[in-house]
């Protein structure tokens, strides 16, 4: 109310602010919008250039090309890896974070130090590959899930969140006869929902975007995640020069590298963008808890 009752200067500021923020929003949204209209424009029009505001000669062939390339199979794999992977991540991270958060845990400092070391040092790609191979994980989805089951950084944030729960709460639960697993499941986890939701997002996005592990550990095509296929289309290019042939008709240019690239960006970004707003309310709160009390 105070704002409305303010003077002309205030009003001018409001107008300016709204316009400015609106322009800022356009600036953020436009690149995404441009990808969208490029992906549904005819390849020849994109080749000729000049698509700025509206799509031209709309066609959905780009998306059918993506689908023809067994998009759904890759999509399904990615969803399975993301869901299973994130659940394993959260489960393992909580199980690791809980004892480290308890002051009564003997050797806590030693184990914390041990875990922290992995933040700074890792075995490297080749030893990792050999380990995965010797465990017989090659060509299974577990090769993508188990080696990175715990992200130390995320686990430490969860530990910090767990530490902020008053000891008295846990003590009273112990008096009621609860063991550690019950305390973790019934008290600690429900009280840390905000942090866990944030970690869920972190873990899920990293699974969704990852391609490198799959490239290393998976040789079977039917186990590839979506990102491998899309990365190949983006970097490898659809039409290659080695065997470029003449004599094609205009229809065959409905889909070109440029439109396919845009469609791939839309397909990969959209699902995560859709999930984001639902988790966002936890997001801000969650990261704050982790950081302030660190």
């Amino acid at each position: 109310m105070a704002i409305r009752e303010g003077g002309a200067g205030r009003k001018a500021f409001q107008v300016f602010n709204t316009v400015f923020l609106f322009l800022l929003m356009l600036l953020c949204l436009y690149p995404l919008y441009l990808q969208l209209i490029t992906s549904i424009s005819h390849g020849l029009e994109v080749m000729k250039g000049g698509i700025i505001l509206l799509p031209r000669n709309v066609t959905f062939n780009t998306y059918t090309t993506l689908v023809r390339g067994e998009l759904f199979m890759y999509m399904r794999n990615t969803i399975v890896y993301t869901v299973v992977g994130t659940l394993v991540n959260l489960g393992m991270s909580c199980l690791c974070a809980y004892p480290l958060a308890r002051k009564t845990f003997s050797g806590r400092k030693f184990f914390t130090a041990l875990v922290t070391v992995t933040l700074f040092f890792s075995g490297g790609m080749i030893p990792m590959y050999l380990t995965v191979k010797q465990f017989g994980l090659m060509d299974t989805m577990w090769a993508l899930i188990l080696p990175g089951a715990i992200s130390t950084y995320n686990m430490i944030i969860i530990r910090t969140a767990f530490q902020s729960i008053p000891d008295s709460l846990i003590e009273s639960a112990q008096l009621d006869g609860a063991n550690d697993l019950v305390i973790l499941a019934r008290i600690v986890v429900p009280l840390s929902k905000a942090t866990l939701a944030t970690m869920l997002l972190f873990y899920a996005v990293s699974h969704w975007n990852s391609y490198f592990d799959a490239m290393l550990y998976i040789n079977k095509k039917n186990l590839y995640p979506l990102q491998i296929m899309l990365r190949n289309m983006l970097i490898g290019g659809l039409f290659n020069e080695e065997t470029a042939i003449a004599g094609a008709s205009a229809d065959s240019f409905a889909v070109t590298d440029a439109t396919l690239r845009s469609a791939a960006i839309v397909v990969t970004t959209l699902p995560i963008l859709v999930v984001y707003p639902f988790v966002q309310r936890y997001f801000v709160k969650g990261v704050m808890i982790g950081s302030v009390k660190g």
């Binding site: 020849l44 080749m47 000729k48 250039g49 039409f239 020069e241 470029a244 042939i245 003449a246 094609a248 008709s249 205009a250 065959s252 240019f253």
Partner: peptide, 28 residues
Amino acid sequence: AEKLSSGQAMCTIDNDGVVRNYNVALST
């Protein structure tokens, strides 16, 4: 690709197979 297929250029020294592909857009 844009310059060749929208008719903005006379000449390019490059892979002839690739360039010929832009003739399709050019002919529209």
